[in-house]
Amino acid sequence: MKNDGCTPRACPSGEPSGSAPAERGAPLLQLGRRPPDRRAILGASVAAVAGVATGSGCGNHHFDAHYKELTDEDKRRIFERIEAETRHKTGVDVKISAPQPMDGVEFAYALDLSLCNGNRRCAEACARENNLPDVPKFRYIQVLEMDRGTLDFENANAYYEHDEVPVPGKVYLPVQCQHCANPPCVKVCPVTATWREPDGLVVVDYNWCIGCRYCIAACPYFGRRFNFHEPTVRPRNINPDMGYISNRLRPVGVVEKCTFCLQRTRVGRYPACLEACPTGARKFGNLADPNGEVRIMLERKRVYVLKEELGTLPRFYYFYG
């Protein structure tokens, strides 16, 4: 059982987040503010019923308010709770943080297809950095192997196994969340559990997601993953440097995705996939910076984006260097 033995500190079940008065990220639908206690009581009672129903007692996060409504105090409390829970569950001391977007930054990614040789180091580094479960084994980055001379998804293979790559006659196309400027997944979410941050990162509030998977249906790039099973990360594989809306351990039944390693990139570092790429095919930078790598690439190289005709305006560019 995942919930037994919770320390009282780990489960402040009497603290519904509805008491959060601040409302920074304006919700799409704001029908006037109501007294917080009423909301808290309602939310808590609904959640309590649901908590009983799902058999998840103190381990659940059904009381937490939406990320955008959390005050600094709420965040501190919730982060501490998650840290304690993680310590209890895995024995690993982790640090949860929520780095904020920087002014004048819009992230973009570029990938040189003439260099990618399909070695999947990116997908593997991503899995470690972002605490992807060991079981079941899925990846945020799907590296597609295609016949040279085609760009045909239908005949692509993401499950190739070879002694060495690249295989003659094949080309490789890694696909991950494209962090669209017009993200279809964000549009469809019924509870605003996913949104595009000011720096262009499309993120998910794992505590708010109801797990309806409408966003997965809406994504043209297979950019999202749902936790069909309880995700299990071996303690030795856990990356303790965790972002609340990025790589912290996710509960079962919610959708997760690539965040361009928000916990790294918002503090100035490069995404893990880029650092792991031995061919240097991956480029990352600030689209707003005229001297940034991605901007220079955009101005000097012929680029294309996947499924441009869908109007999603991806911030992930492919080019041939």
Binding site: G18, P27, L28, L29, L31, R34, R39, L42, G43, V46, A47, A50, G51, A53, T54, S56, N60, H62, H66, C189, P190, V191, T192, A193, N207, W208, C209, I210, G211, C212, R213, F226, N227, P251, V252, G253, V254, V255
Partner: peptide, 19 residues
């Protein structure tokens, strides 16, 4: 069908954040 039935209250106007 939903993964988190305990979170379904997020759909309710006023207390949740229906999109």
């Amino acid at each position: 069908d939903v993964g988190g039935p305990g979170n379904l209250w997020h759909l309710i106007p006023f207390i949740g954040r229906p999109n």
